[in-house]
Design a protein around this nucleic acid. Structure first.
Length: 490
RNA sequence: CGGGGUGUGGCGCAGUUGGUAGCGCGCUACGUUCGGGACGUAGAGGCCGGAAGUUCGAAUCUUCUCACCCCGACCA
C-alpha cells in the first residue's frame, strides 16, 4: 500500500513533504522559497476561503484591497512593528530594466526609486495610513474591513505551506471607538477561527494569548489558536491582535467622540493563512496519504467502476451516473473515475493518497445484487450497502467521518498533554514524547528564553481563563498562580 | 548566515583506474488484462547545472560559479 510514501513514524517531515507533493497540493517553484499551489490544493484553499469569508461577512465585515507595496517611510512609524519585520522584508529599489552587455538583461541603475518600496509582510501600515483619511467622527466607527491577499516574508528556511516566502492569507483590520469594543472584536475573531478550525478542519484548538516574546510586533495582546500536530509539535493556526492605539498614534488616526473630544481610535488585526493547509495535512493524514475532512474535500465521493467488457462498463456506468446526479442534487461533490487507462487497484490507491473521504466501487456483482462497495478514508473500513440506502448512507457517512477525524485528533491531543511540575520530567517528556505541557511559569520573558534555549520549547499560549492554583515556576521555582502551555512548535 | 548534502531524459537514480551515457517509473502505439498500485511487444525522449582549465579525449580530474535540499540560528 501507499507505494513509495515514507512512513510518518520513520521520518515525519519527509512524510509531510511527500504527501503535499504526491497528493498534488503544491510543489516547489523555480523561485526560492515560493511554492506553486496546484489545482487540487488550491481548491481546498478556495473552500476554506469561502467558509471563512462568509463567517467574516456574518460578523459584519466587508472586503477591500490595499496595495502590495508599502513606502519605506510608513514602515518605520511604529517602532516595535519595524523591528519585528525588518529582517525579512523584500525591498523594491528600481523600476526599470535595460539590455545588458552579453545579450542579457540588467537593472537600470538610473531608474532608482526616490523612496524604496517594501513588499508587504503585513498591511497595518498602509491600511492605517489610509484609515486616517476615512475616520473623522465616532459615526465612522467601527470600521470593519478584511482583505484577501498575498504577503512576503523573506524566510531563511521554508517548507511547503508551513513557511514560504510568499503566502496567501486574509488580514482583517478594524478600527473602534473604545478599548473595550476593540478587545471584544479581537476575541470575537479568535473565536471565529476556533470554530472554523474545529468544525471544518476537524482540528481541535486551544484559544489563548501569547507571551510577550511571542506577541505580534505592535500589538498589546495577541490571541491565538494553537493545535497539536501528529509529531507532538504545536502549530499556531491563527492569530488575532489587539493593537490598542499603537497604530492610531503612529499614523495619527483620531476621531471626534460624542462629547466633541478628539481621541485616538482603537485597532485590531487578525489573520489566517495557507499555513492552515499544512495543519490540515499534519493533523489527519496517515501512511496511505492525505485524509481530508468532508467539509473541505474538493471531491467528497469518488466512484470507481469495475468491469471486464464494454457491456459491463455500460451497465455499471449507467448506475454510477445516476448516483452522481442524485449526490449532486444533495450538494455532495462526486467524481466518477471512468478512466479506462488505469485499473481499479491503481485508482483506489490514488484516491486514498488524495484523501477523498468516501470511495464507492461498483462491479458486475454489485450491479447484479444492487449494492455498492463503500470504503471510508479515515478508518479504511469497507462495507456493502444496498442501492436503495446508498444516498442516505453516504450523507450519514460524511458526517460521521467529519466527527471521527475531529475526535481522533482530540484524543491524540488529550493523550499528549501533560501536567508537569518537575524540570527534569519536563525535559524528559519533550525528549521522548513531545506534546503540550501544562506547567507553572514565573511570568518573565527571561525565564521563557532560558527554557527555550535549553529545550526548544516555548510558551504556546496562556489560557484565557486559567484555573487558579498556587505553584512554583518549572524553571526558576518562583511562585506562580496558574499554568501556561509549553510545546515545541512549527 | 554557519554545518552537511545533491545537481545526469518528465520523475527517481546508476555510471569503476578519464574512452563520448544507461536503468526503473512515467510517456506514445498496438494487443492481452481489469473486485487493491497489470503484462507483452515496439517506440519517443539527455550536448550529464554553468564557466574556465588539464588532456589526443572529461558526466568522471582541477578551479571558480550558480541552484536546490537537509540540519541549526530567525519566523505565521
Amino acid at each position: 500500500m501507499a507505494k513509495g510514501l515514507t512512513k510518518k513514524e520513520e521520518n515525519y517531515s519527509q512524510w509531510y513533504n511527500e504527501i503535499v507533493i504526491k497528493a498534488d497540493l503544491a510543489e516547489n517553484s523555480a523561485v526560492r522559497g515560493c511554492m506553486v499551489i496546484k489545482p487540487y490544493g488550491y481548491s481546498i484553499w478556495e473552500k476554506m476561503q469561502s467558509v471563512l469569508d462568509k463567517m467574516f461577512k456574518d460578523t459584519g465585515h466587508v472586503n477591500a484591497y490595499f496595495p502590495l507595496f508599502i513606502p519605506k517611510s510608513f514602515f518605520s512609524k511604529e517602532a516595535s512593528h519595524v523591528e519585528g519585520f525588518a529582517k525579512e522584508c523584500a525591498v523594491v529599489t528600481h523600476y526599470r530594466l535595460k539590455n545588458g552587455k552579453n545579450g542579457g538583461i540588467e537593472v537600470d541603475e538610473t531608474a532608482k526609486l526616490e523612496e524604496e518600496l517594501i513588499v508587504r509582510p503585513t498591511s497595518e501600515t498602509i491600511i492605517w495610513n489610509t484609515y486616517k483619511n476615512w475616520i473623522n467622527s465616532y459615526r465612522d466607527l467601527p470600521l470593519l474591513i478584511n482583505q484577501w491577499a498575498n504577503v512576503v516574508r523573506w524566510e531563511m528556511r521554508t517548507r511547503l505551506f508551513l513557511r514560504t516566502a510568499e503566502f496567501l492569507w486574509q488580514e482583517g483590520h478594524t478600527a473602534h471607538a473604545t478599548r473595550e469594543e476593540a478587545i471584544a472584536e479581537t476575541e470575537q475573531m479568535i473565536n471565529v477561527y476556533a470554530k472554523f478550525a474545529e468544525e471544518y478542519l476537524g482540528l481541535p484548538v486551544h484559544i489563548g494569548t501569547k507571551s510577550p516574546n511571542e506577541r505580534f510586533a505592535g500589538a498589546e495582546e495577541t490571541y491565538c489558536i494553537e493545535a497539536l500536530m501528529q509529531d507532538g509539535k504545536a502549530l499556531q493556526a491563527g492569530t488575532s491582535h489587539f493593537l490598542a492605539q499603537n497604530f492610531a498614534k503612529a499614523f495619527d488616526v483620531k476621531f471626534l467622540n460624542k462629547e466633541n473630544k478628539e481621541e485616538y481610535v482603537w485597532a485590531t488585526s487578525w489573520g489566517v493563512s495557507t499555513r492552515l493547509m499544512g495543519a490540515l495535512v499534519m493533523a489527519h493524514s496517515d501512511n496511505n496519504g492525505l485524509v481530508l475532512p468532508p467539509k473541505l474535500a474538493p471531491i467528497q465521493v469518488v466512484i470507481v467502476p469495475i468491469y471486464k467488457s464494454e457491456e459491463e462498463f455500460k451497465l455499471v456506468s449507467e448506475r454510477a451516473e445516476k448516483l452522481c446526479n442524485d449526490l449532486r442534487e444533495h450538494n455532495i461533490s462526486v467524481k466518477f473515475d471512468n478512466r479506462d487507462s488505469q485499473r481499479p487497484g491503481y485508482k483506489f490507491a490514488e484516491w486514498e493518497l488524495k484523501g477523498v473521504p468516501v470511495r464507492l466501487a461498483i462491479g458486475p456483482k454489485d450491479y447484479e445484487n444492487s449494492t455498492w462497495e463503500v470504503a471510508r478514508r479515515d478508518t479504511l473500513e469497507k462495507s456493502i450497502v444496498s442501492n436503495d440506502e446508498i444516498l442516505q448512507h453516504i450523507k450519514n457517512l460524511l458526517d460521521d467521518i467529519q466527527k471521527n477525524i475531529y475526535k481522533k485528533a482530540l484524543d491524540f491531543r488529550t493523550d499528549n498533554t501533560y501536567k508537569v511540575d518537575d524540570w527534569d520530567e519536563f525535559k524528559r517528556i519533550l525528549e521522548i514524547s513531545p506534546g503540550f505541557i501544562e506547567a507553572h511559569w514565573d511570568g518573565t520573558p527571561e525565564t521563557e528564553e532560558l527554557i527555550k534555549n535549553e529545550t526548544k520549547a516555548t510558551i504556546r499560549f496562556i489560557p484565557t481563563n486559567p484555573e487558579l492554583e498556587d505553584g512554583k515556576c518549572i524553571y526558576s521555582g518562583k511562585p506562580s498562580k496558574f499554568r501556561v502551555i509549553f510545546a515545541k512548535s512549527y
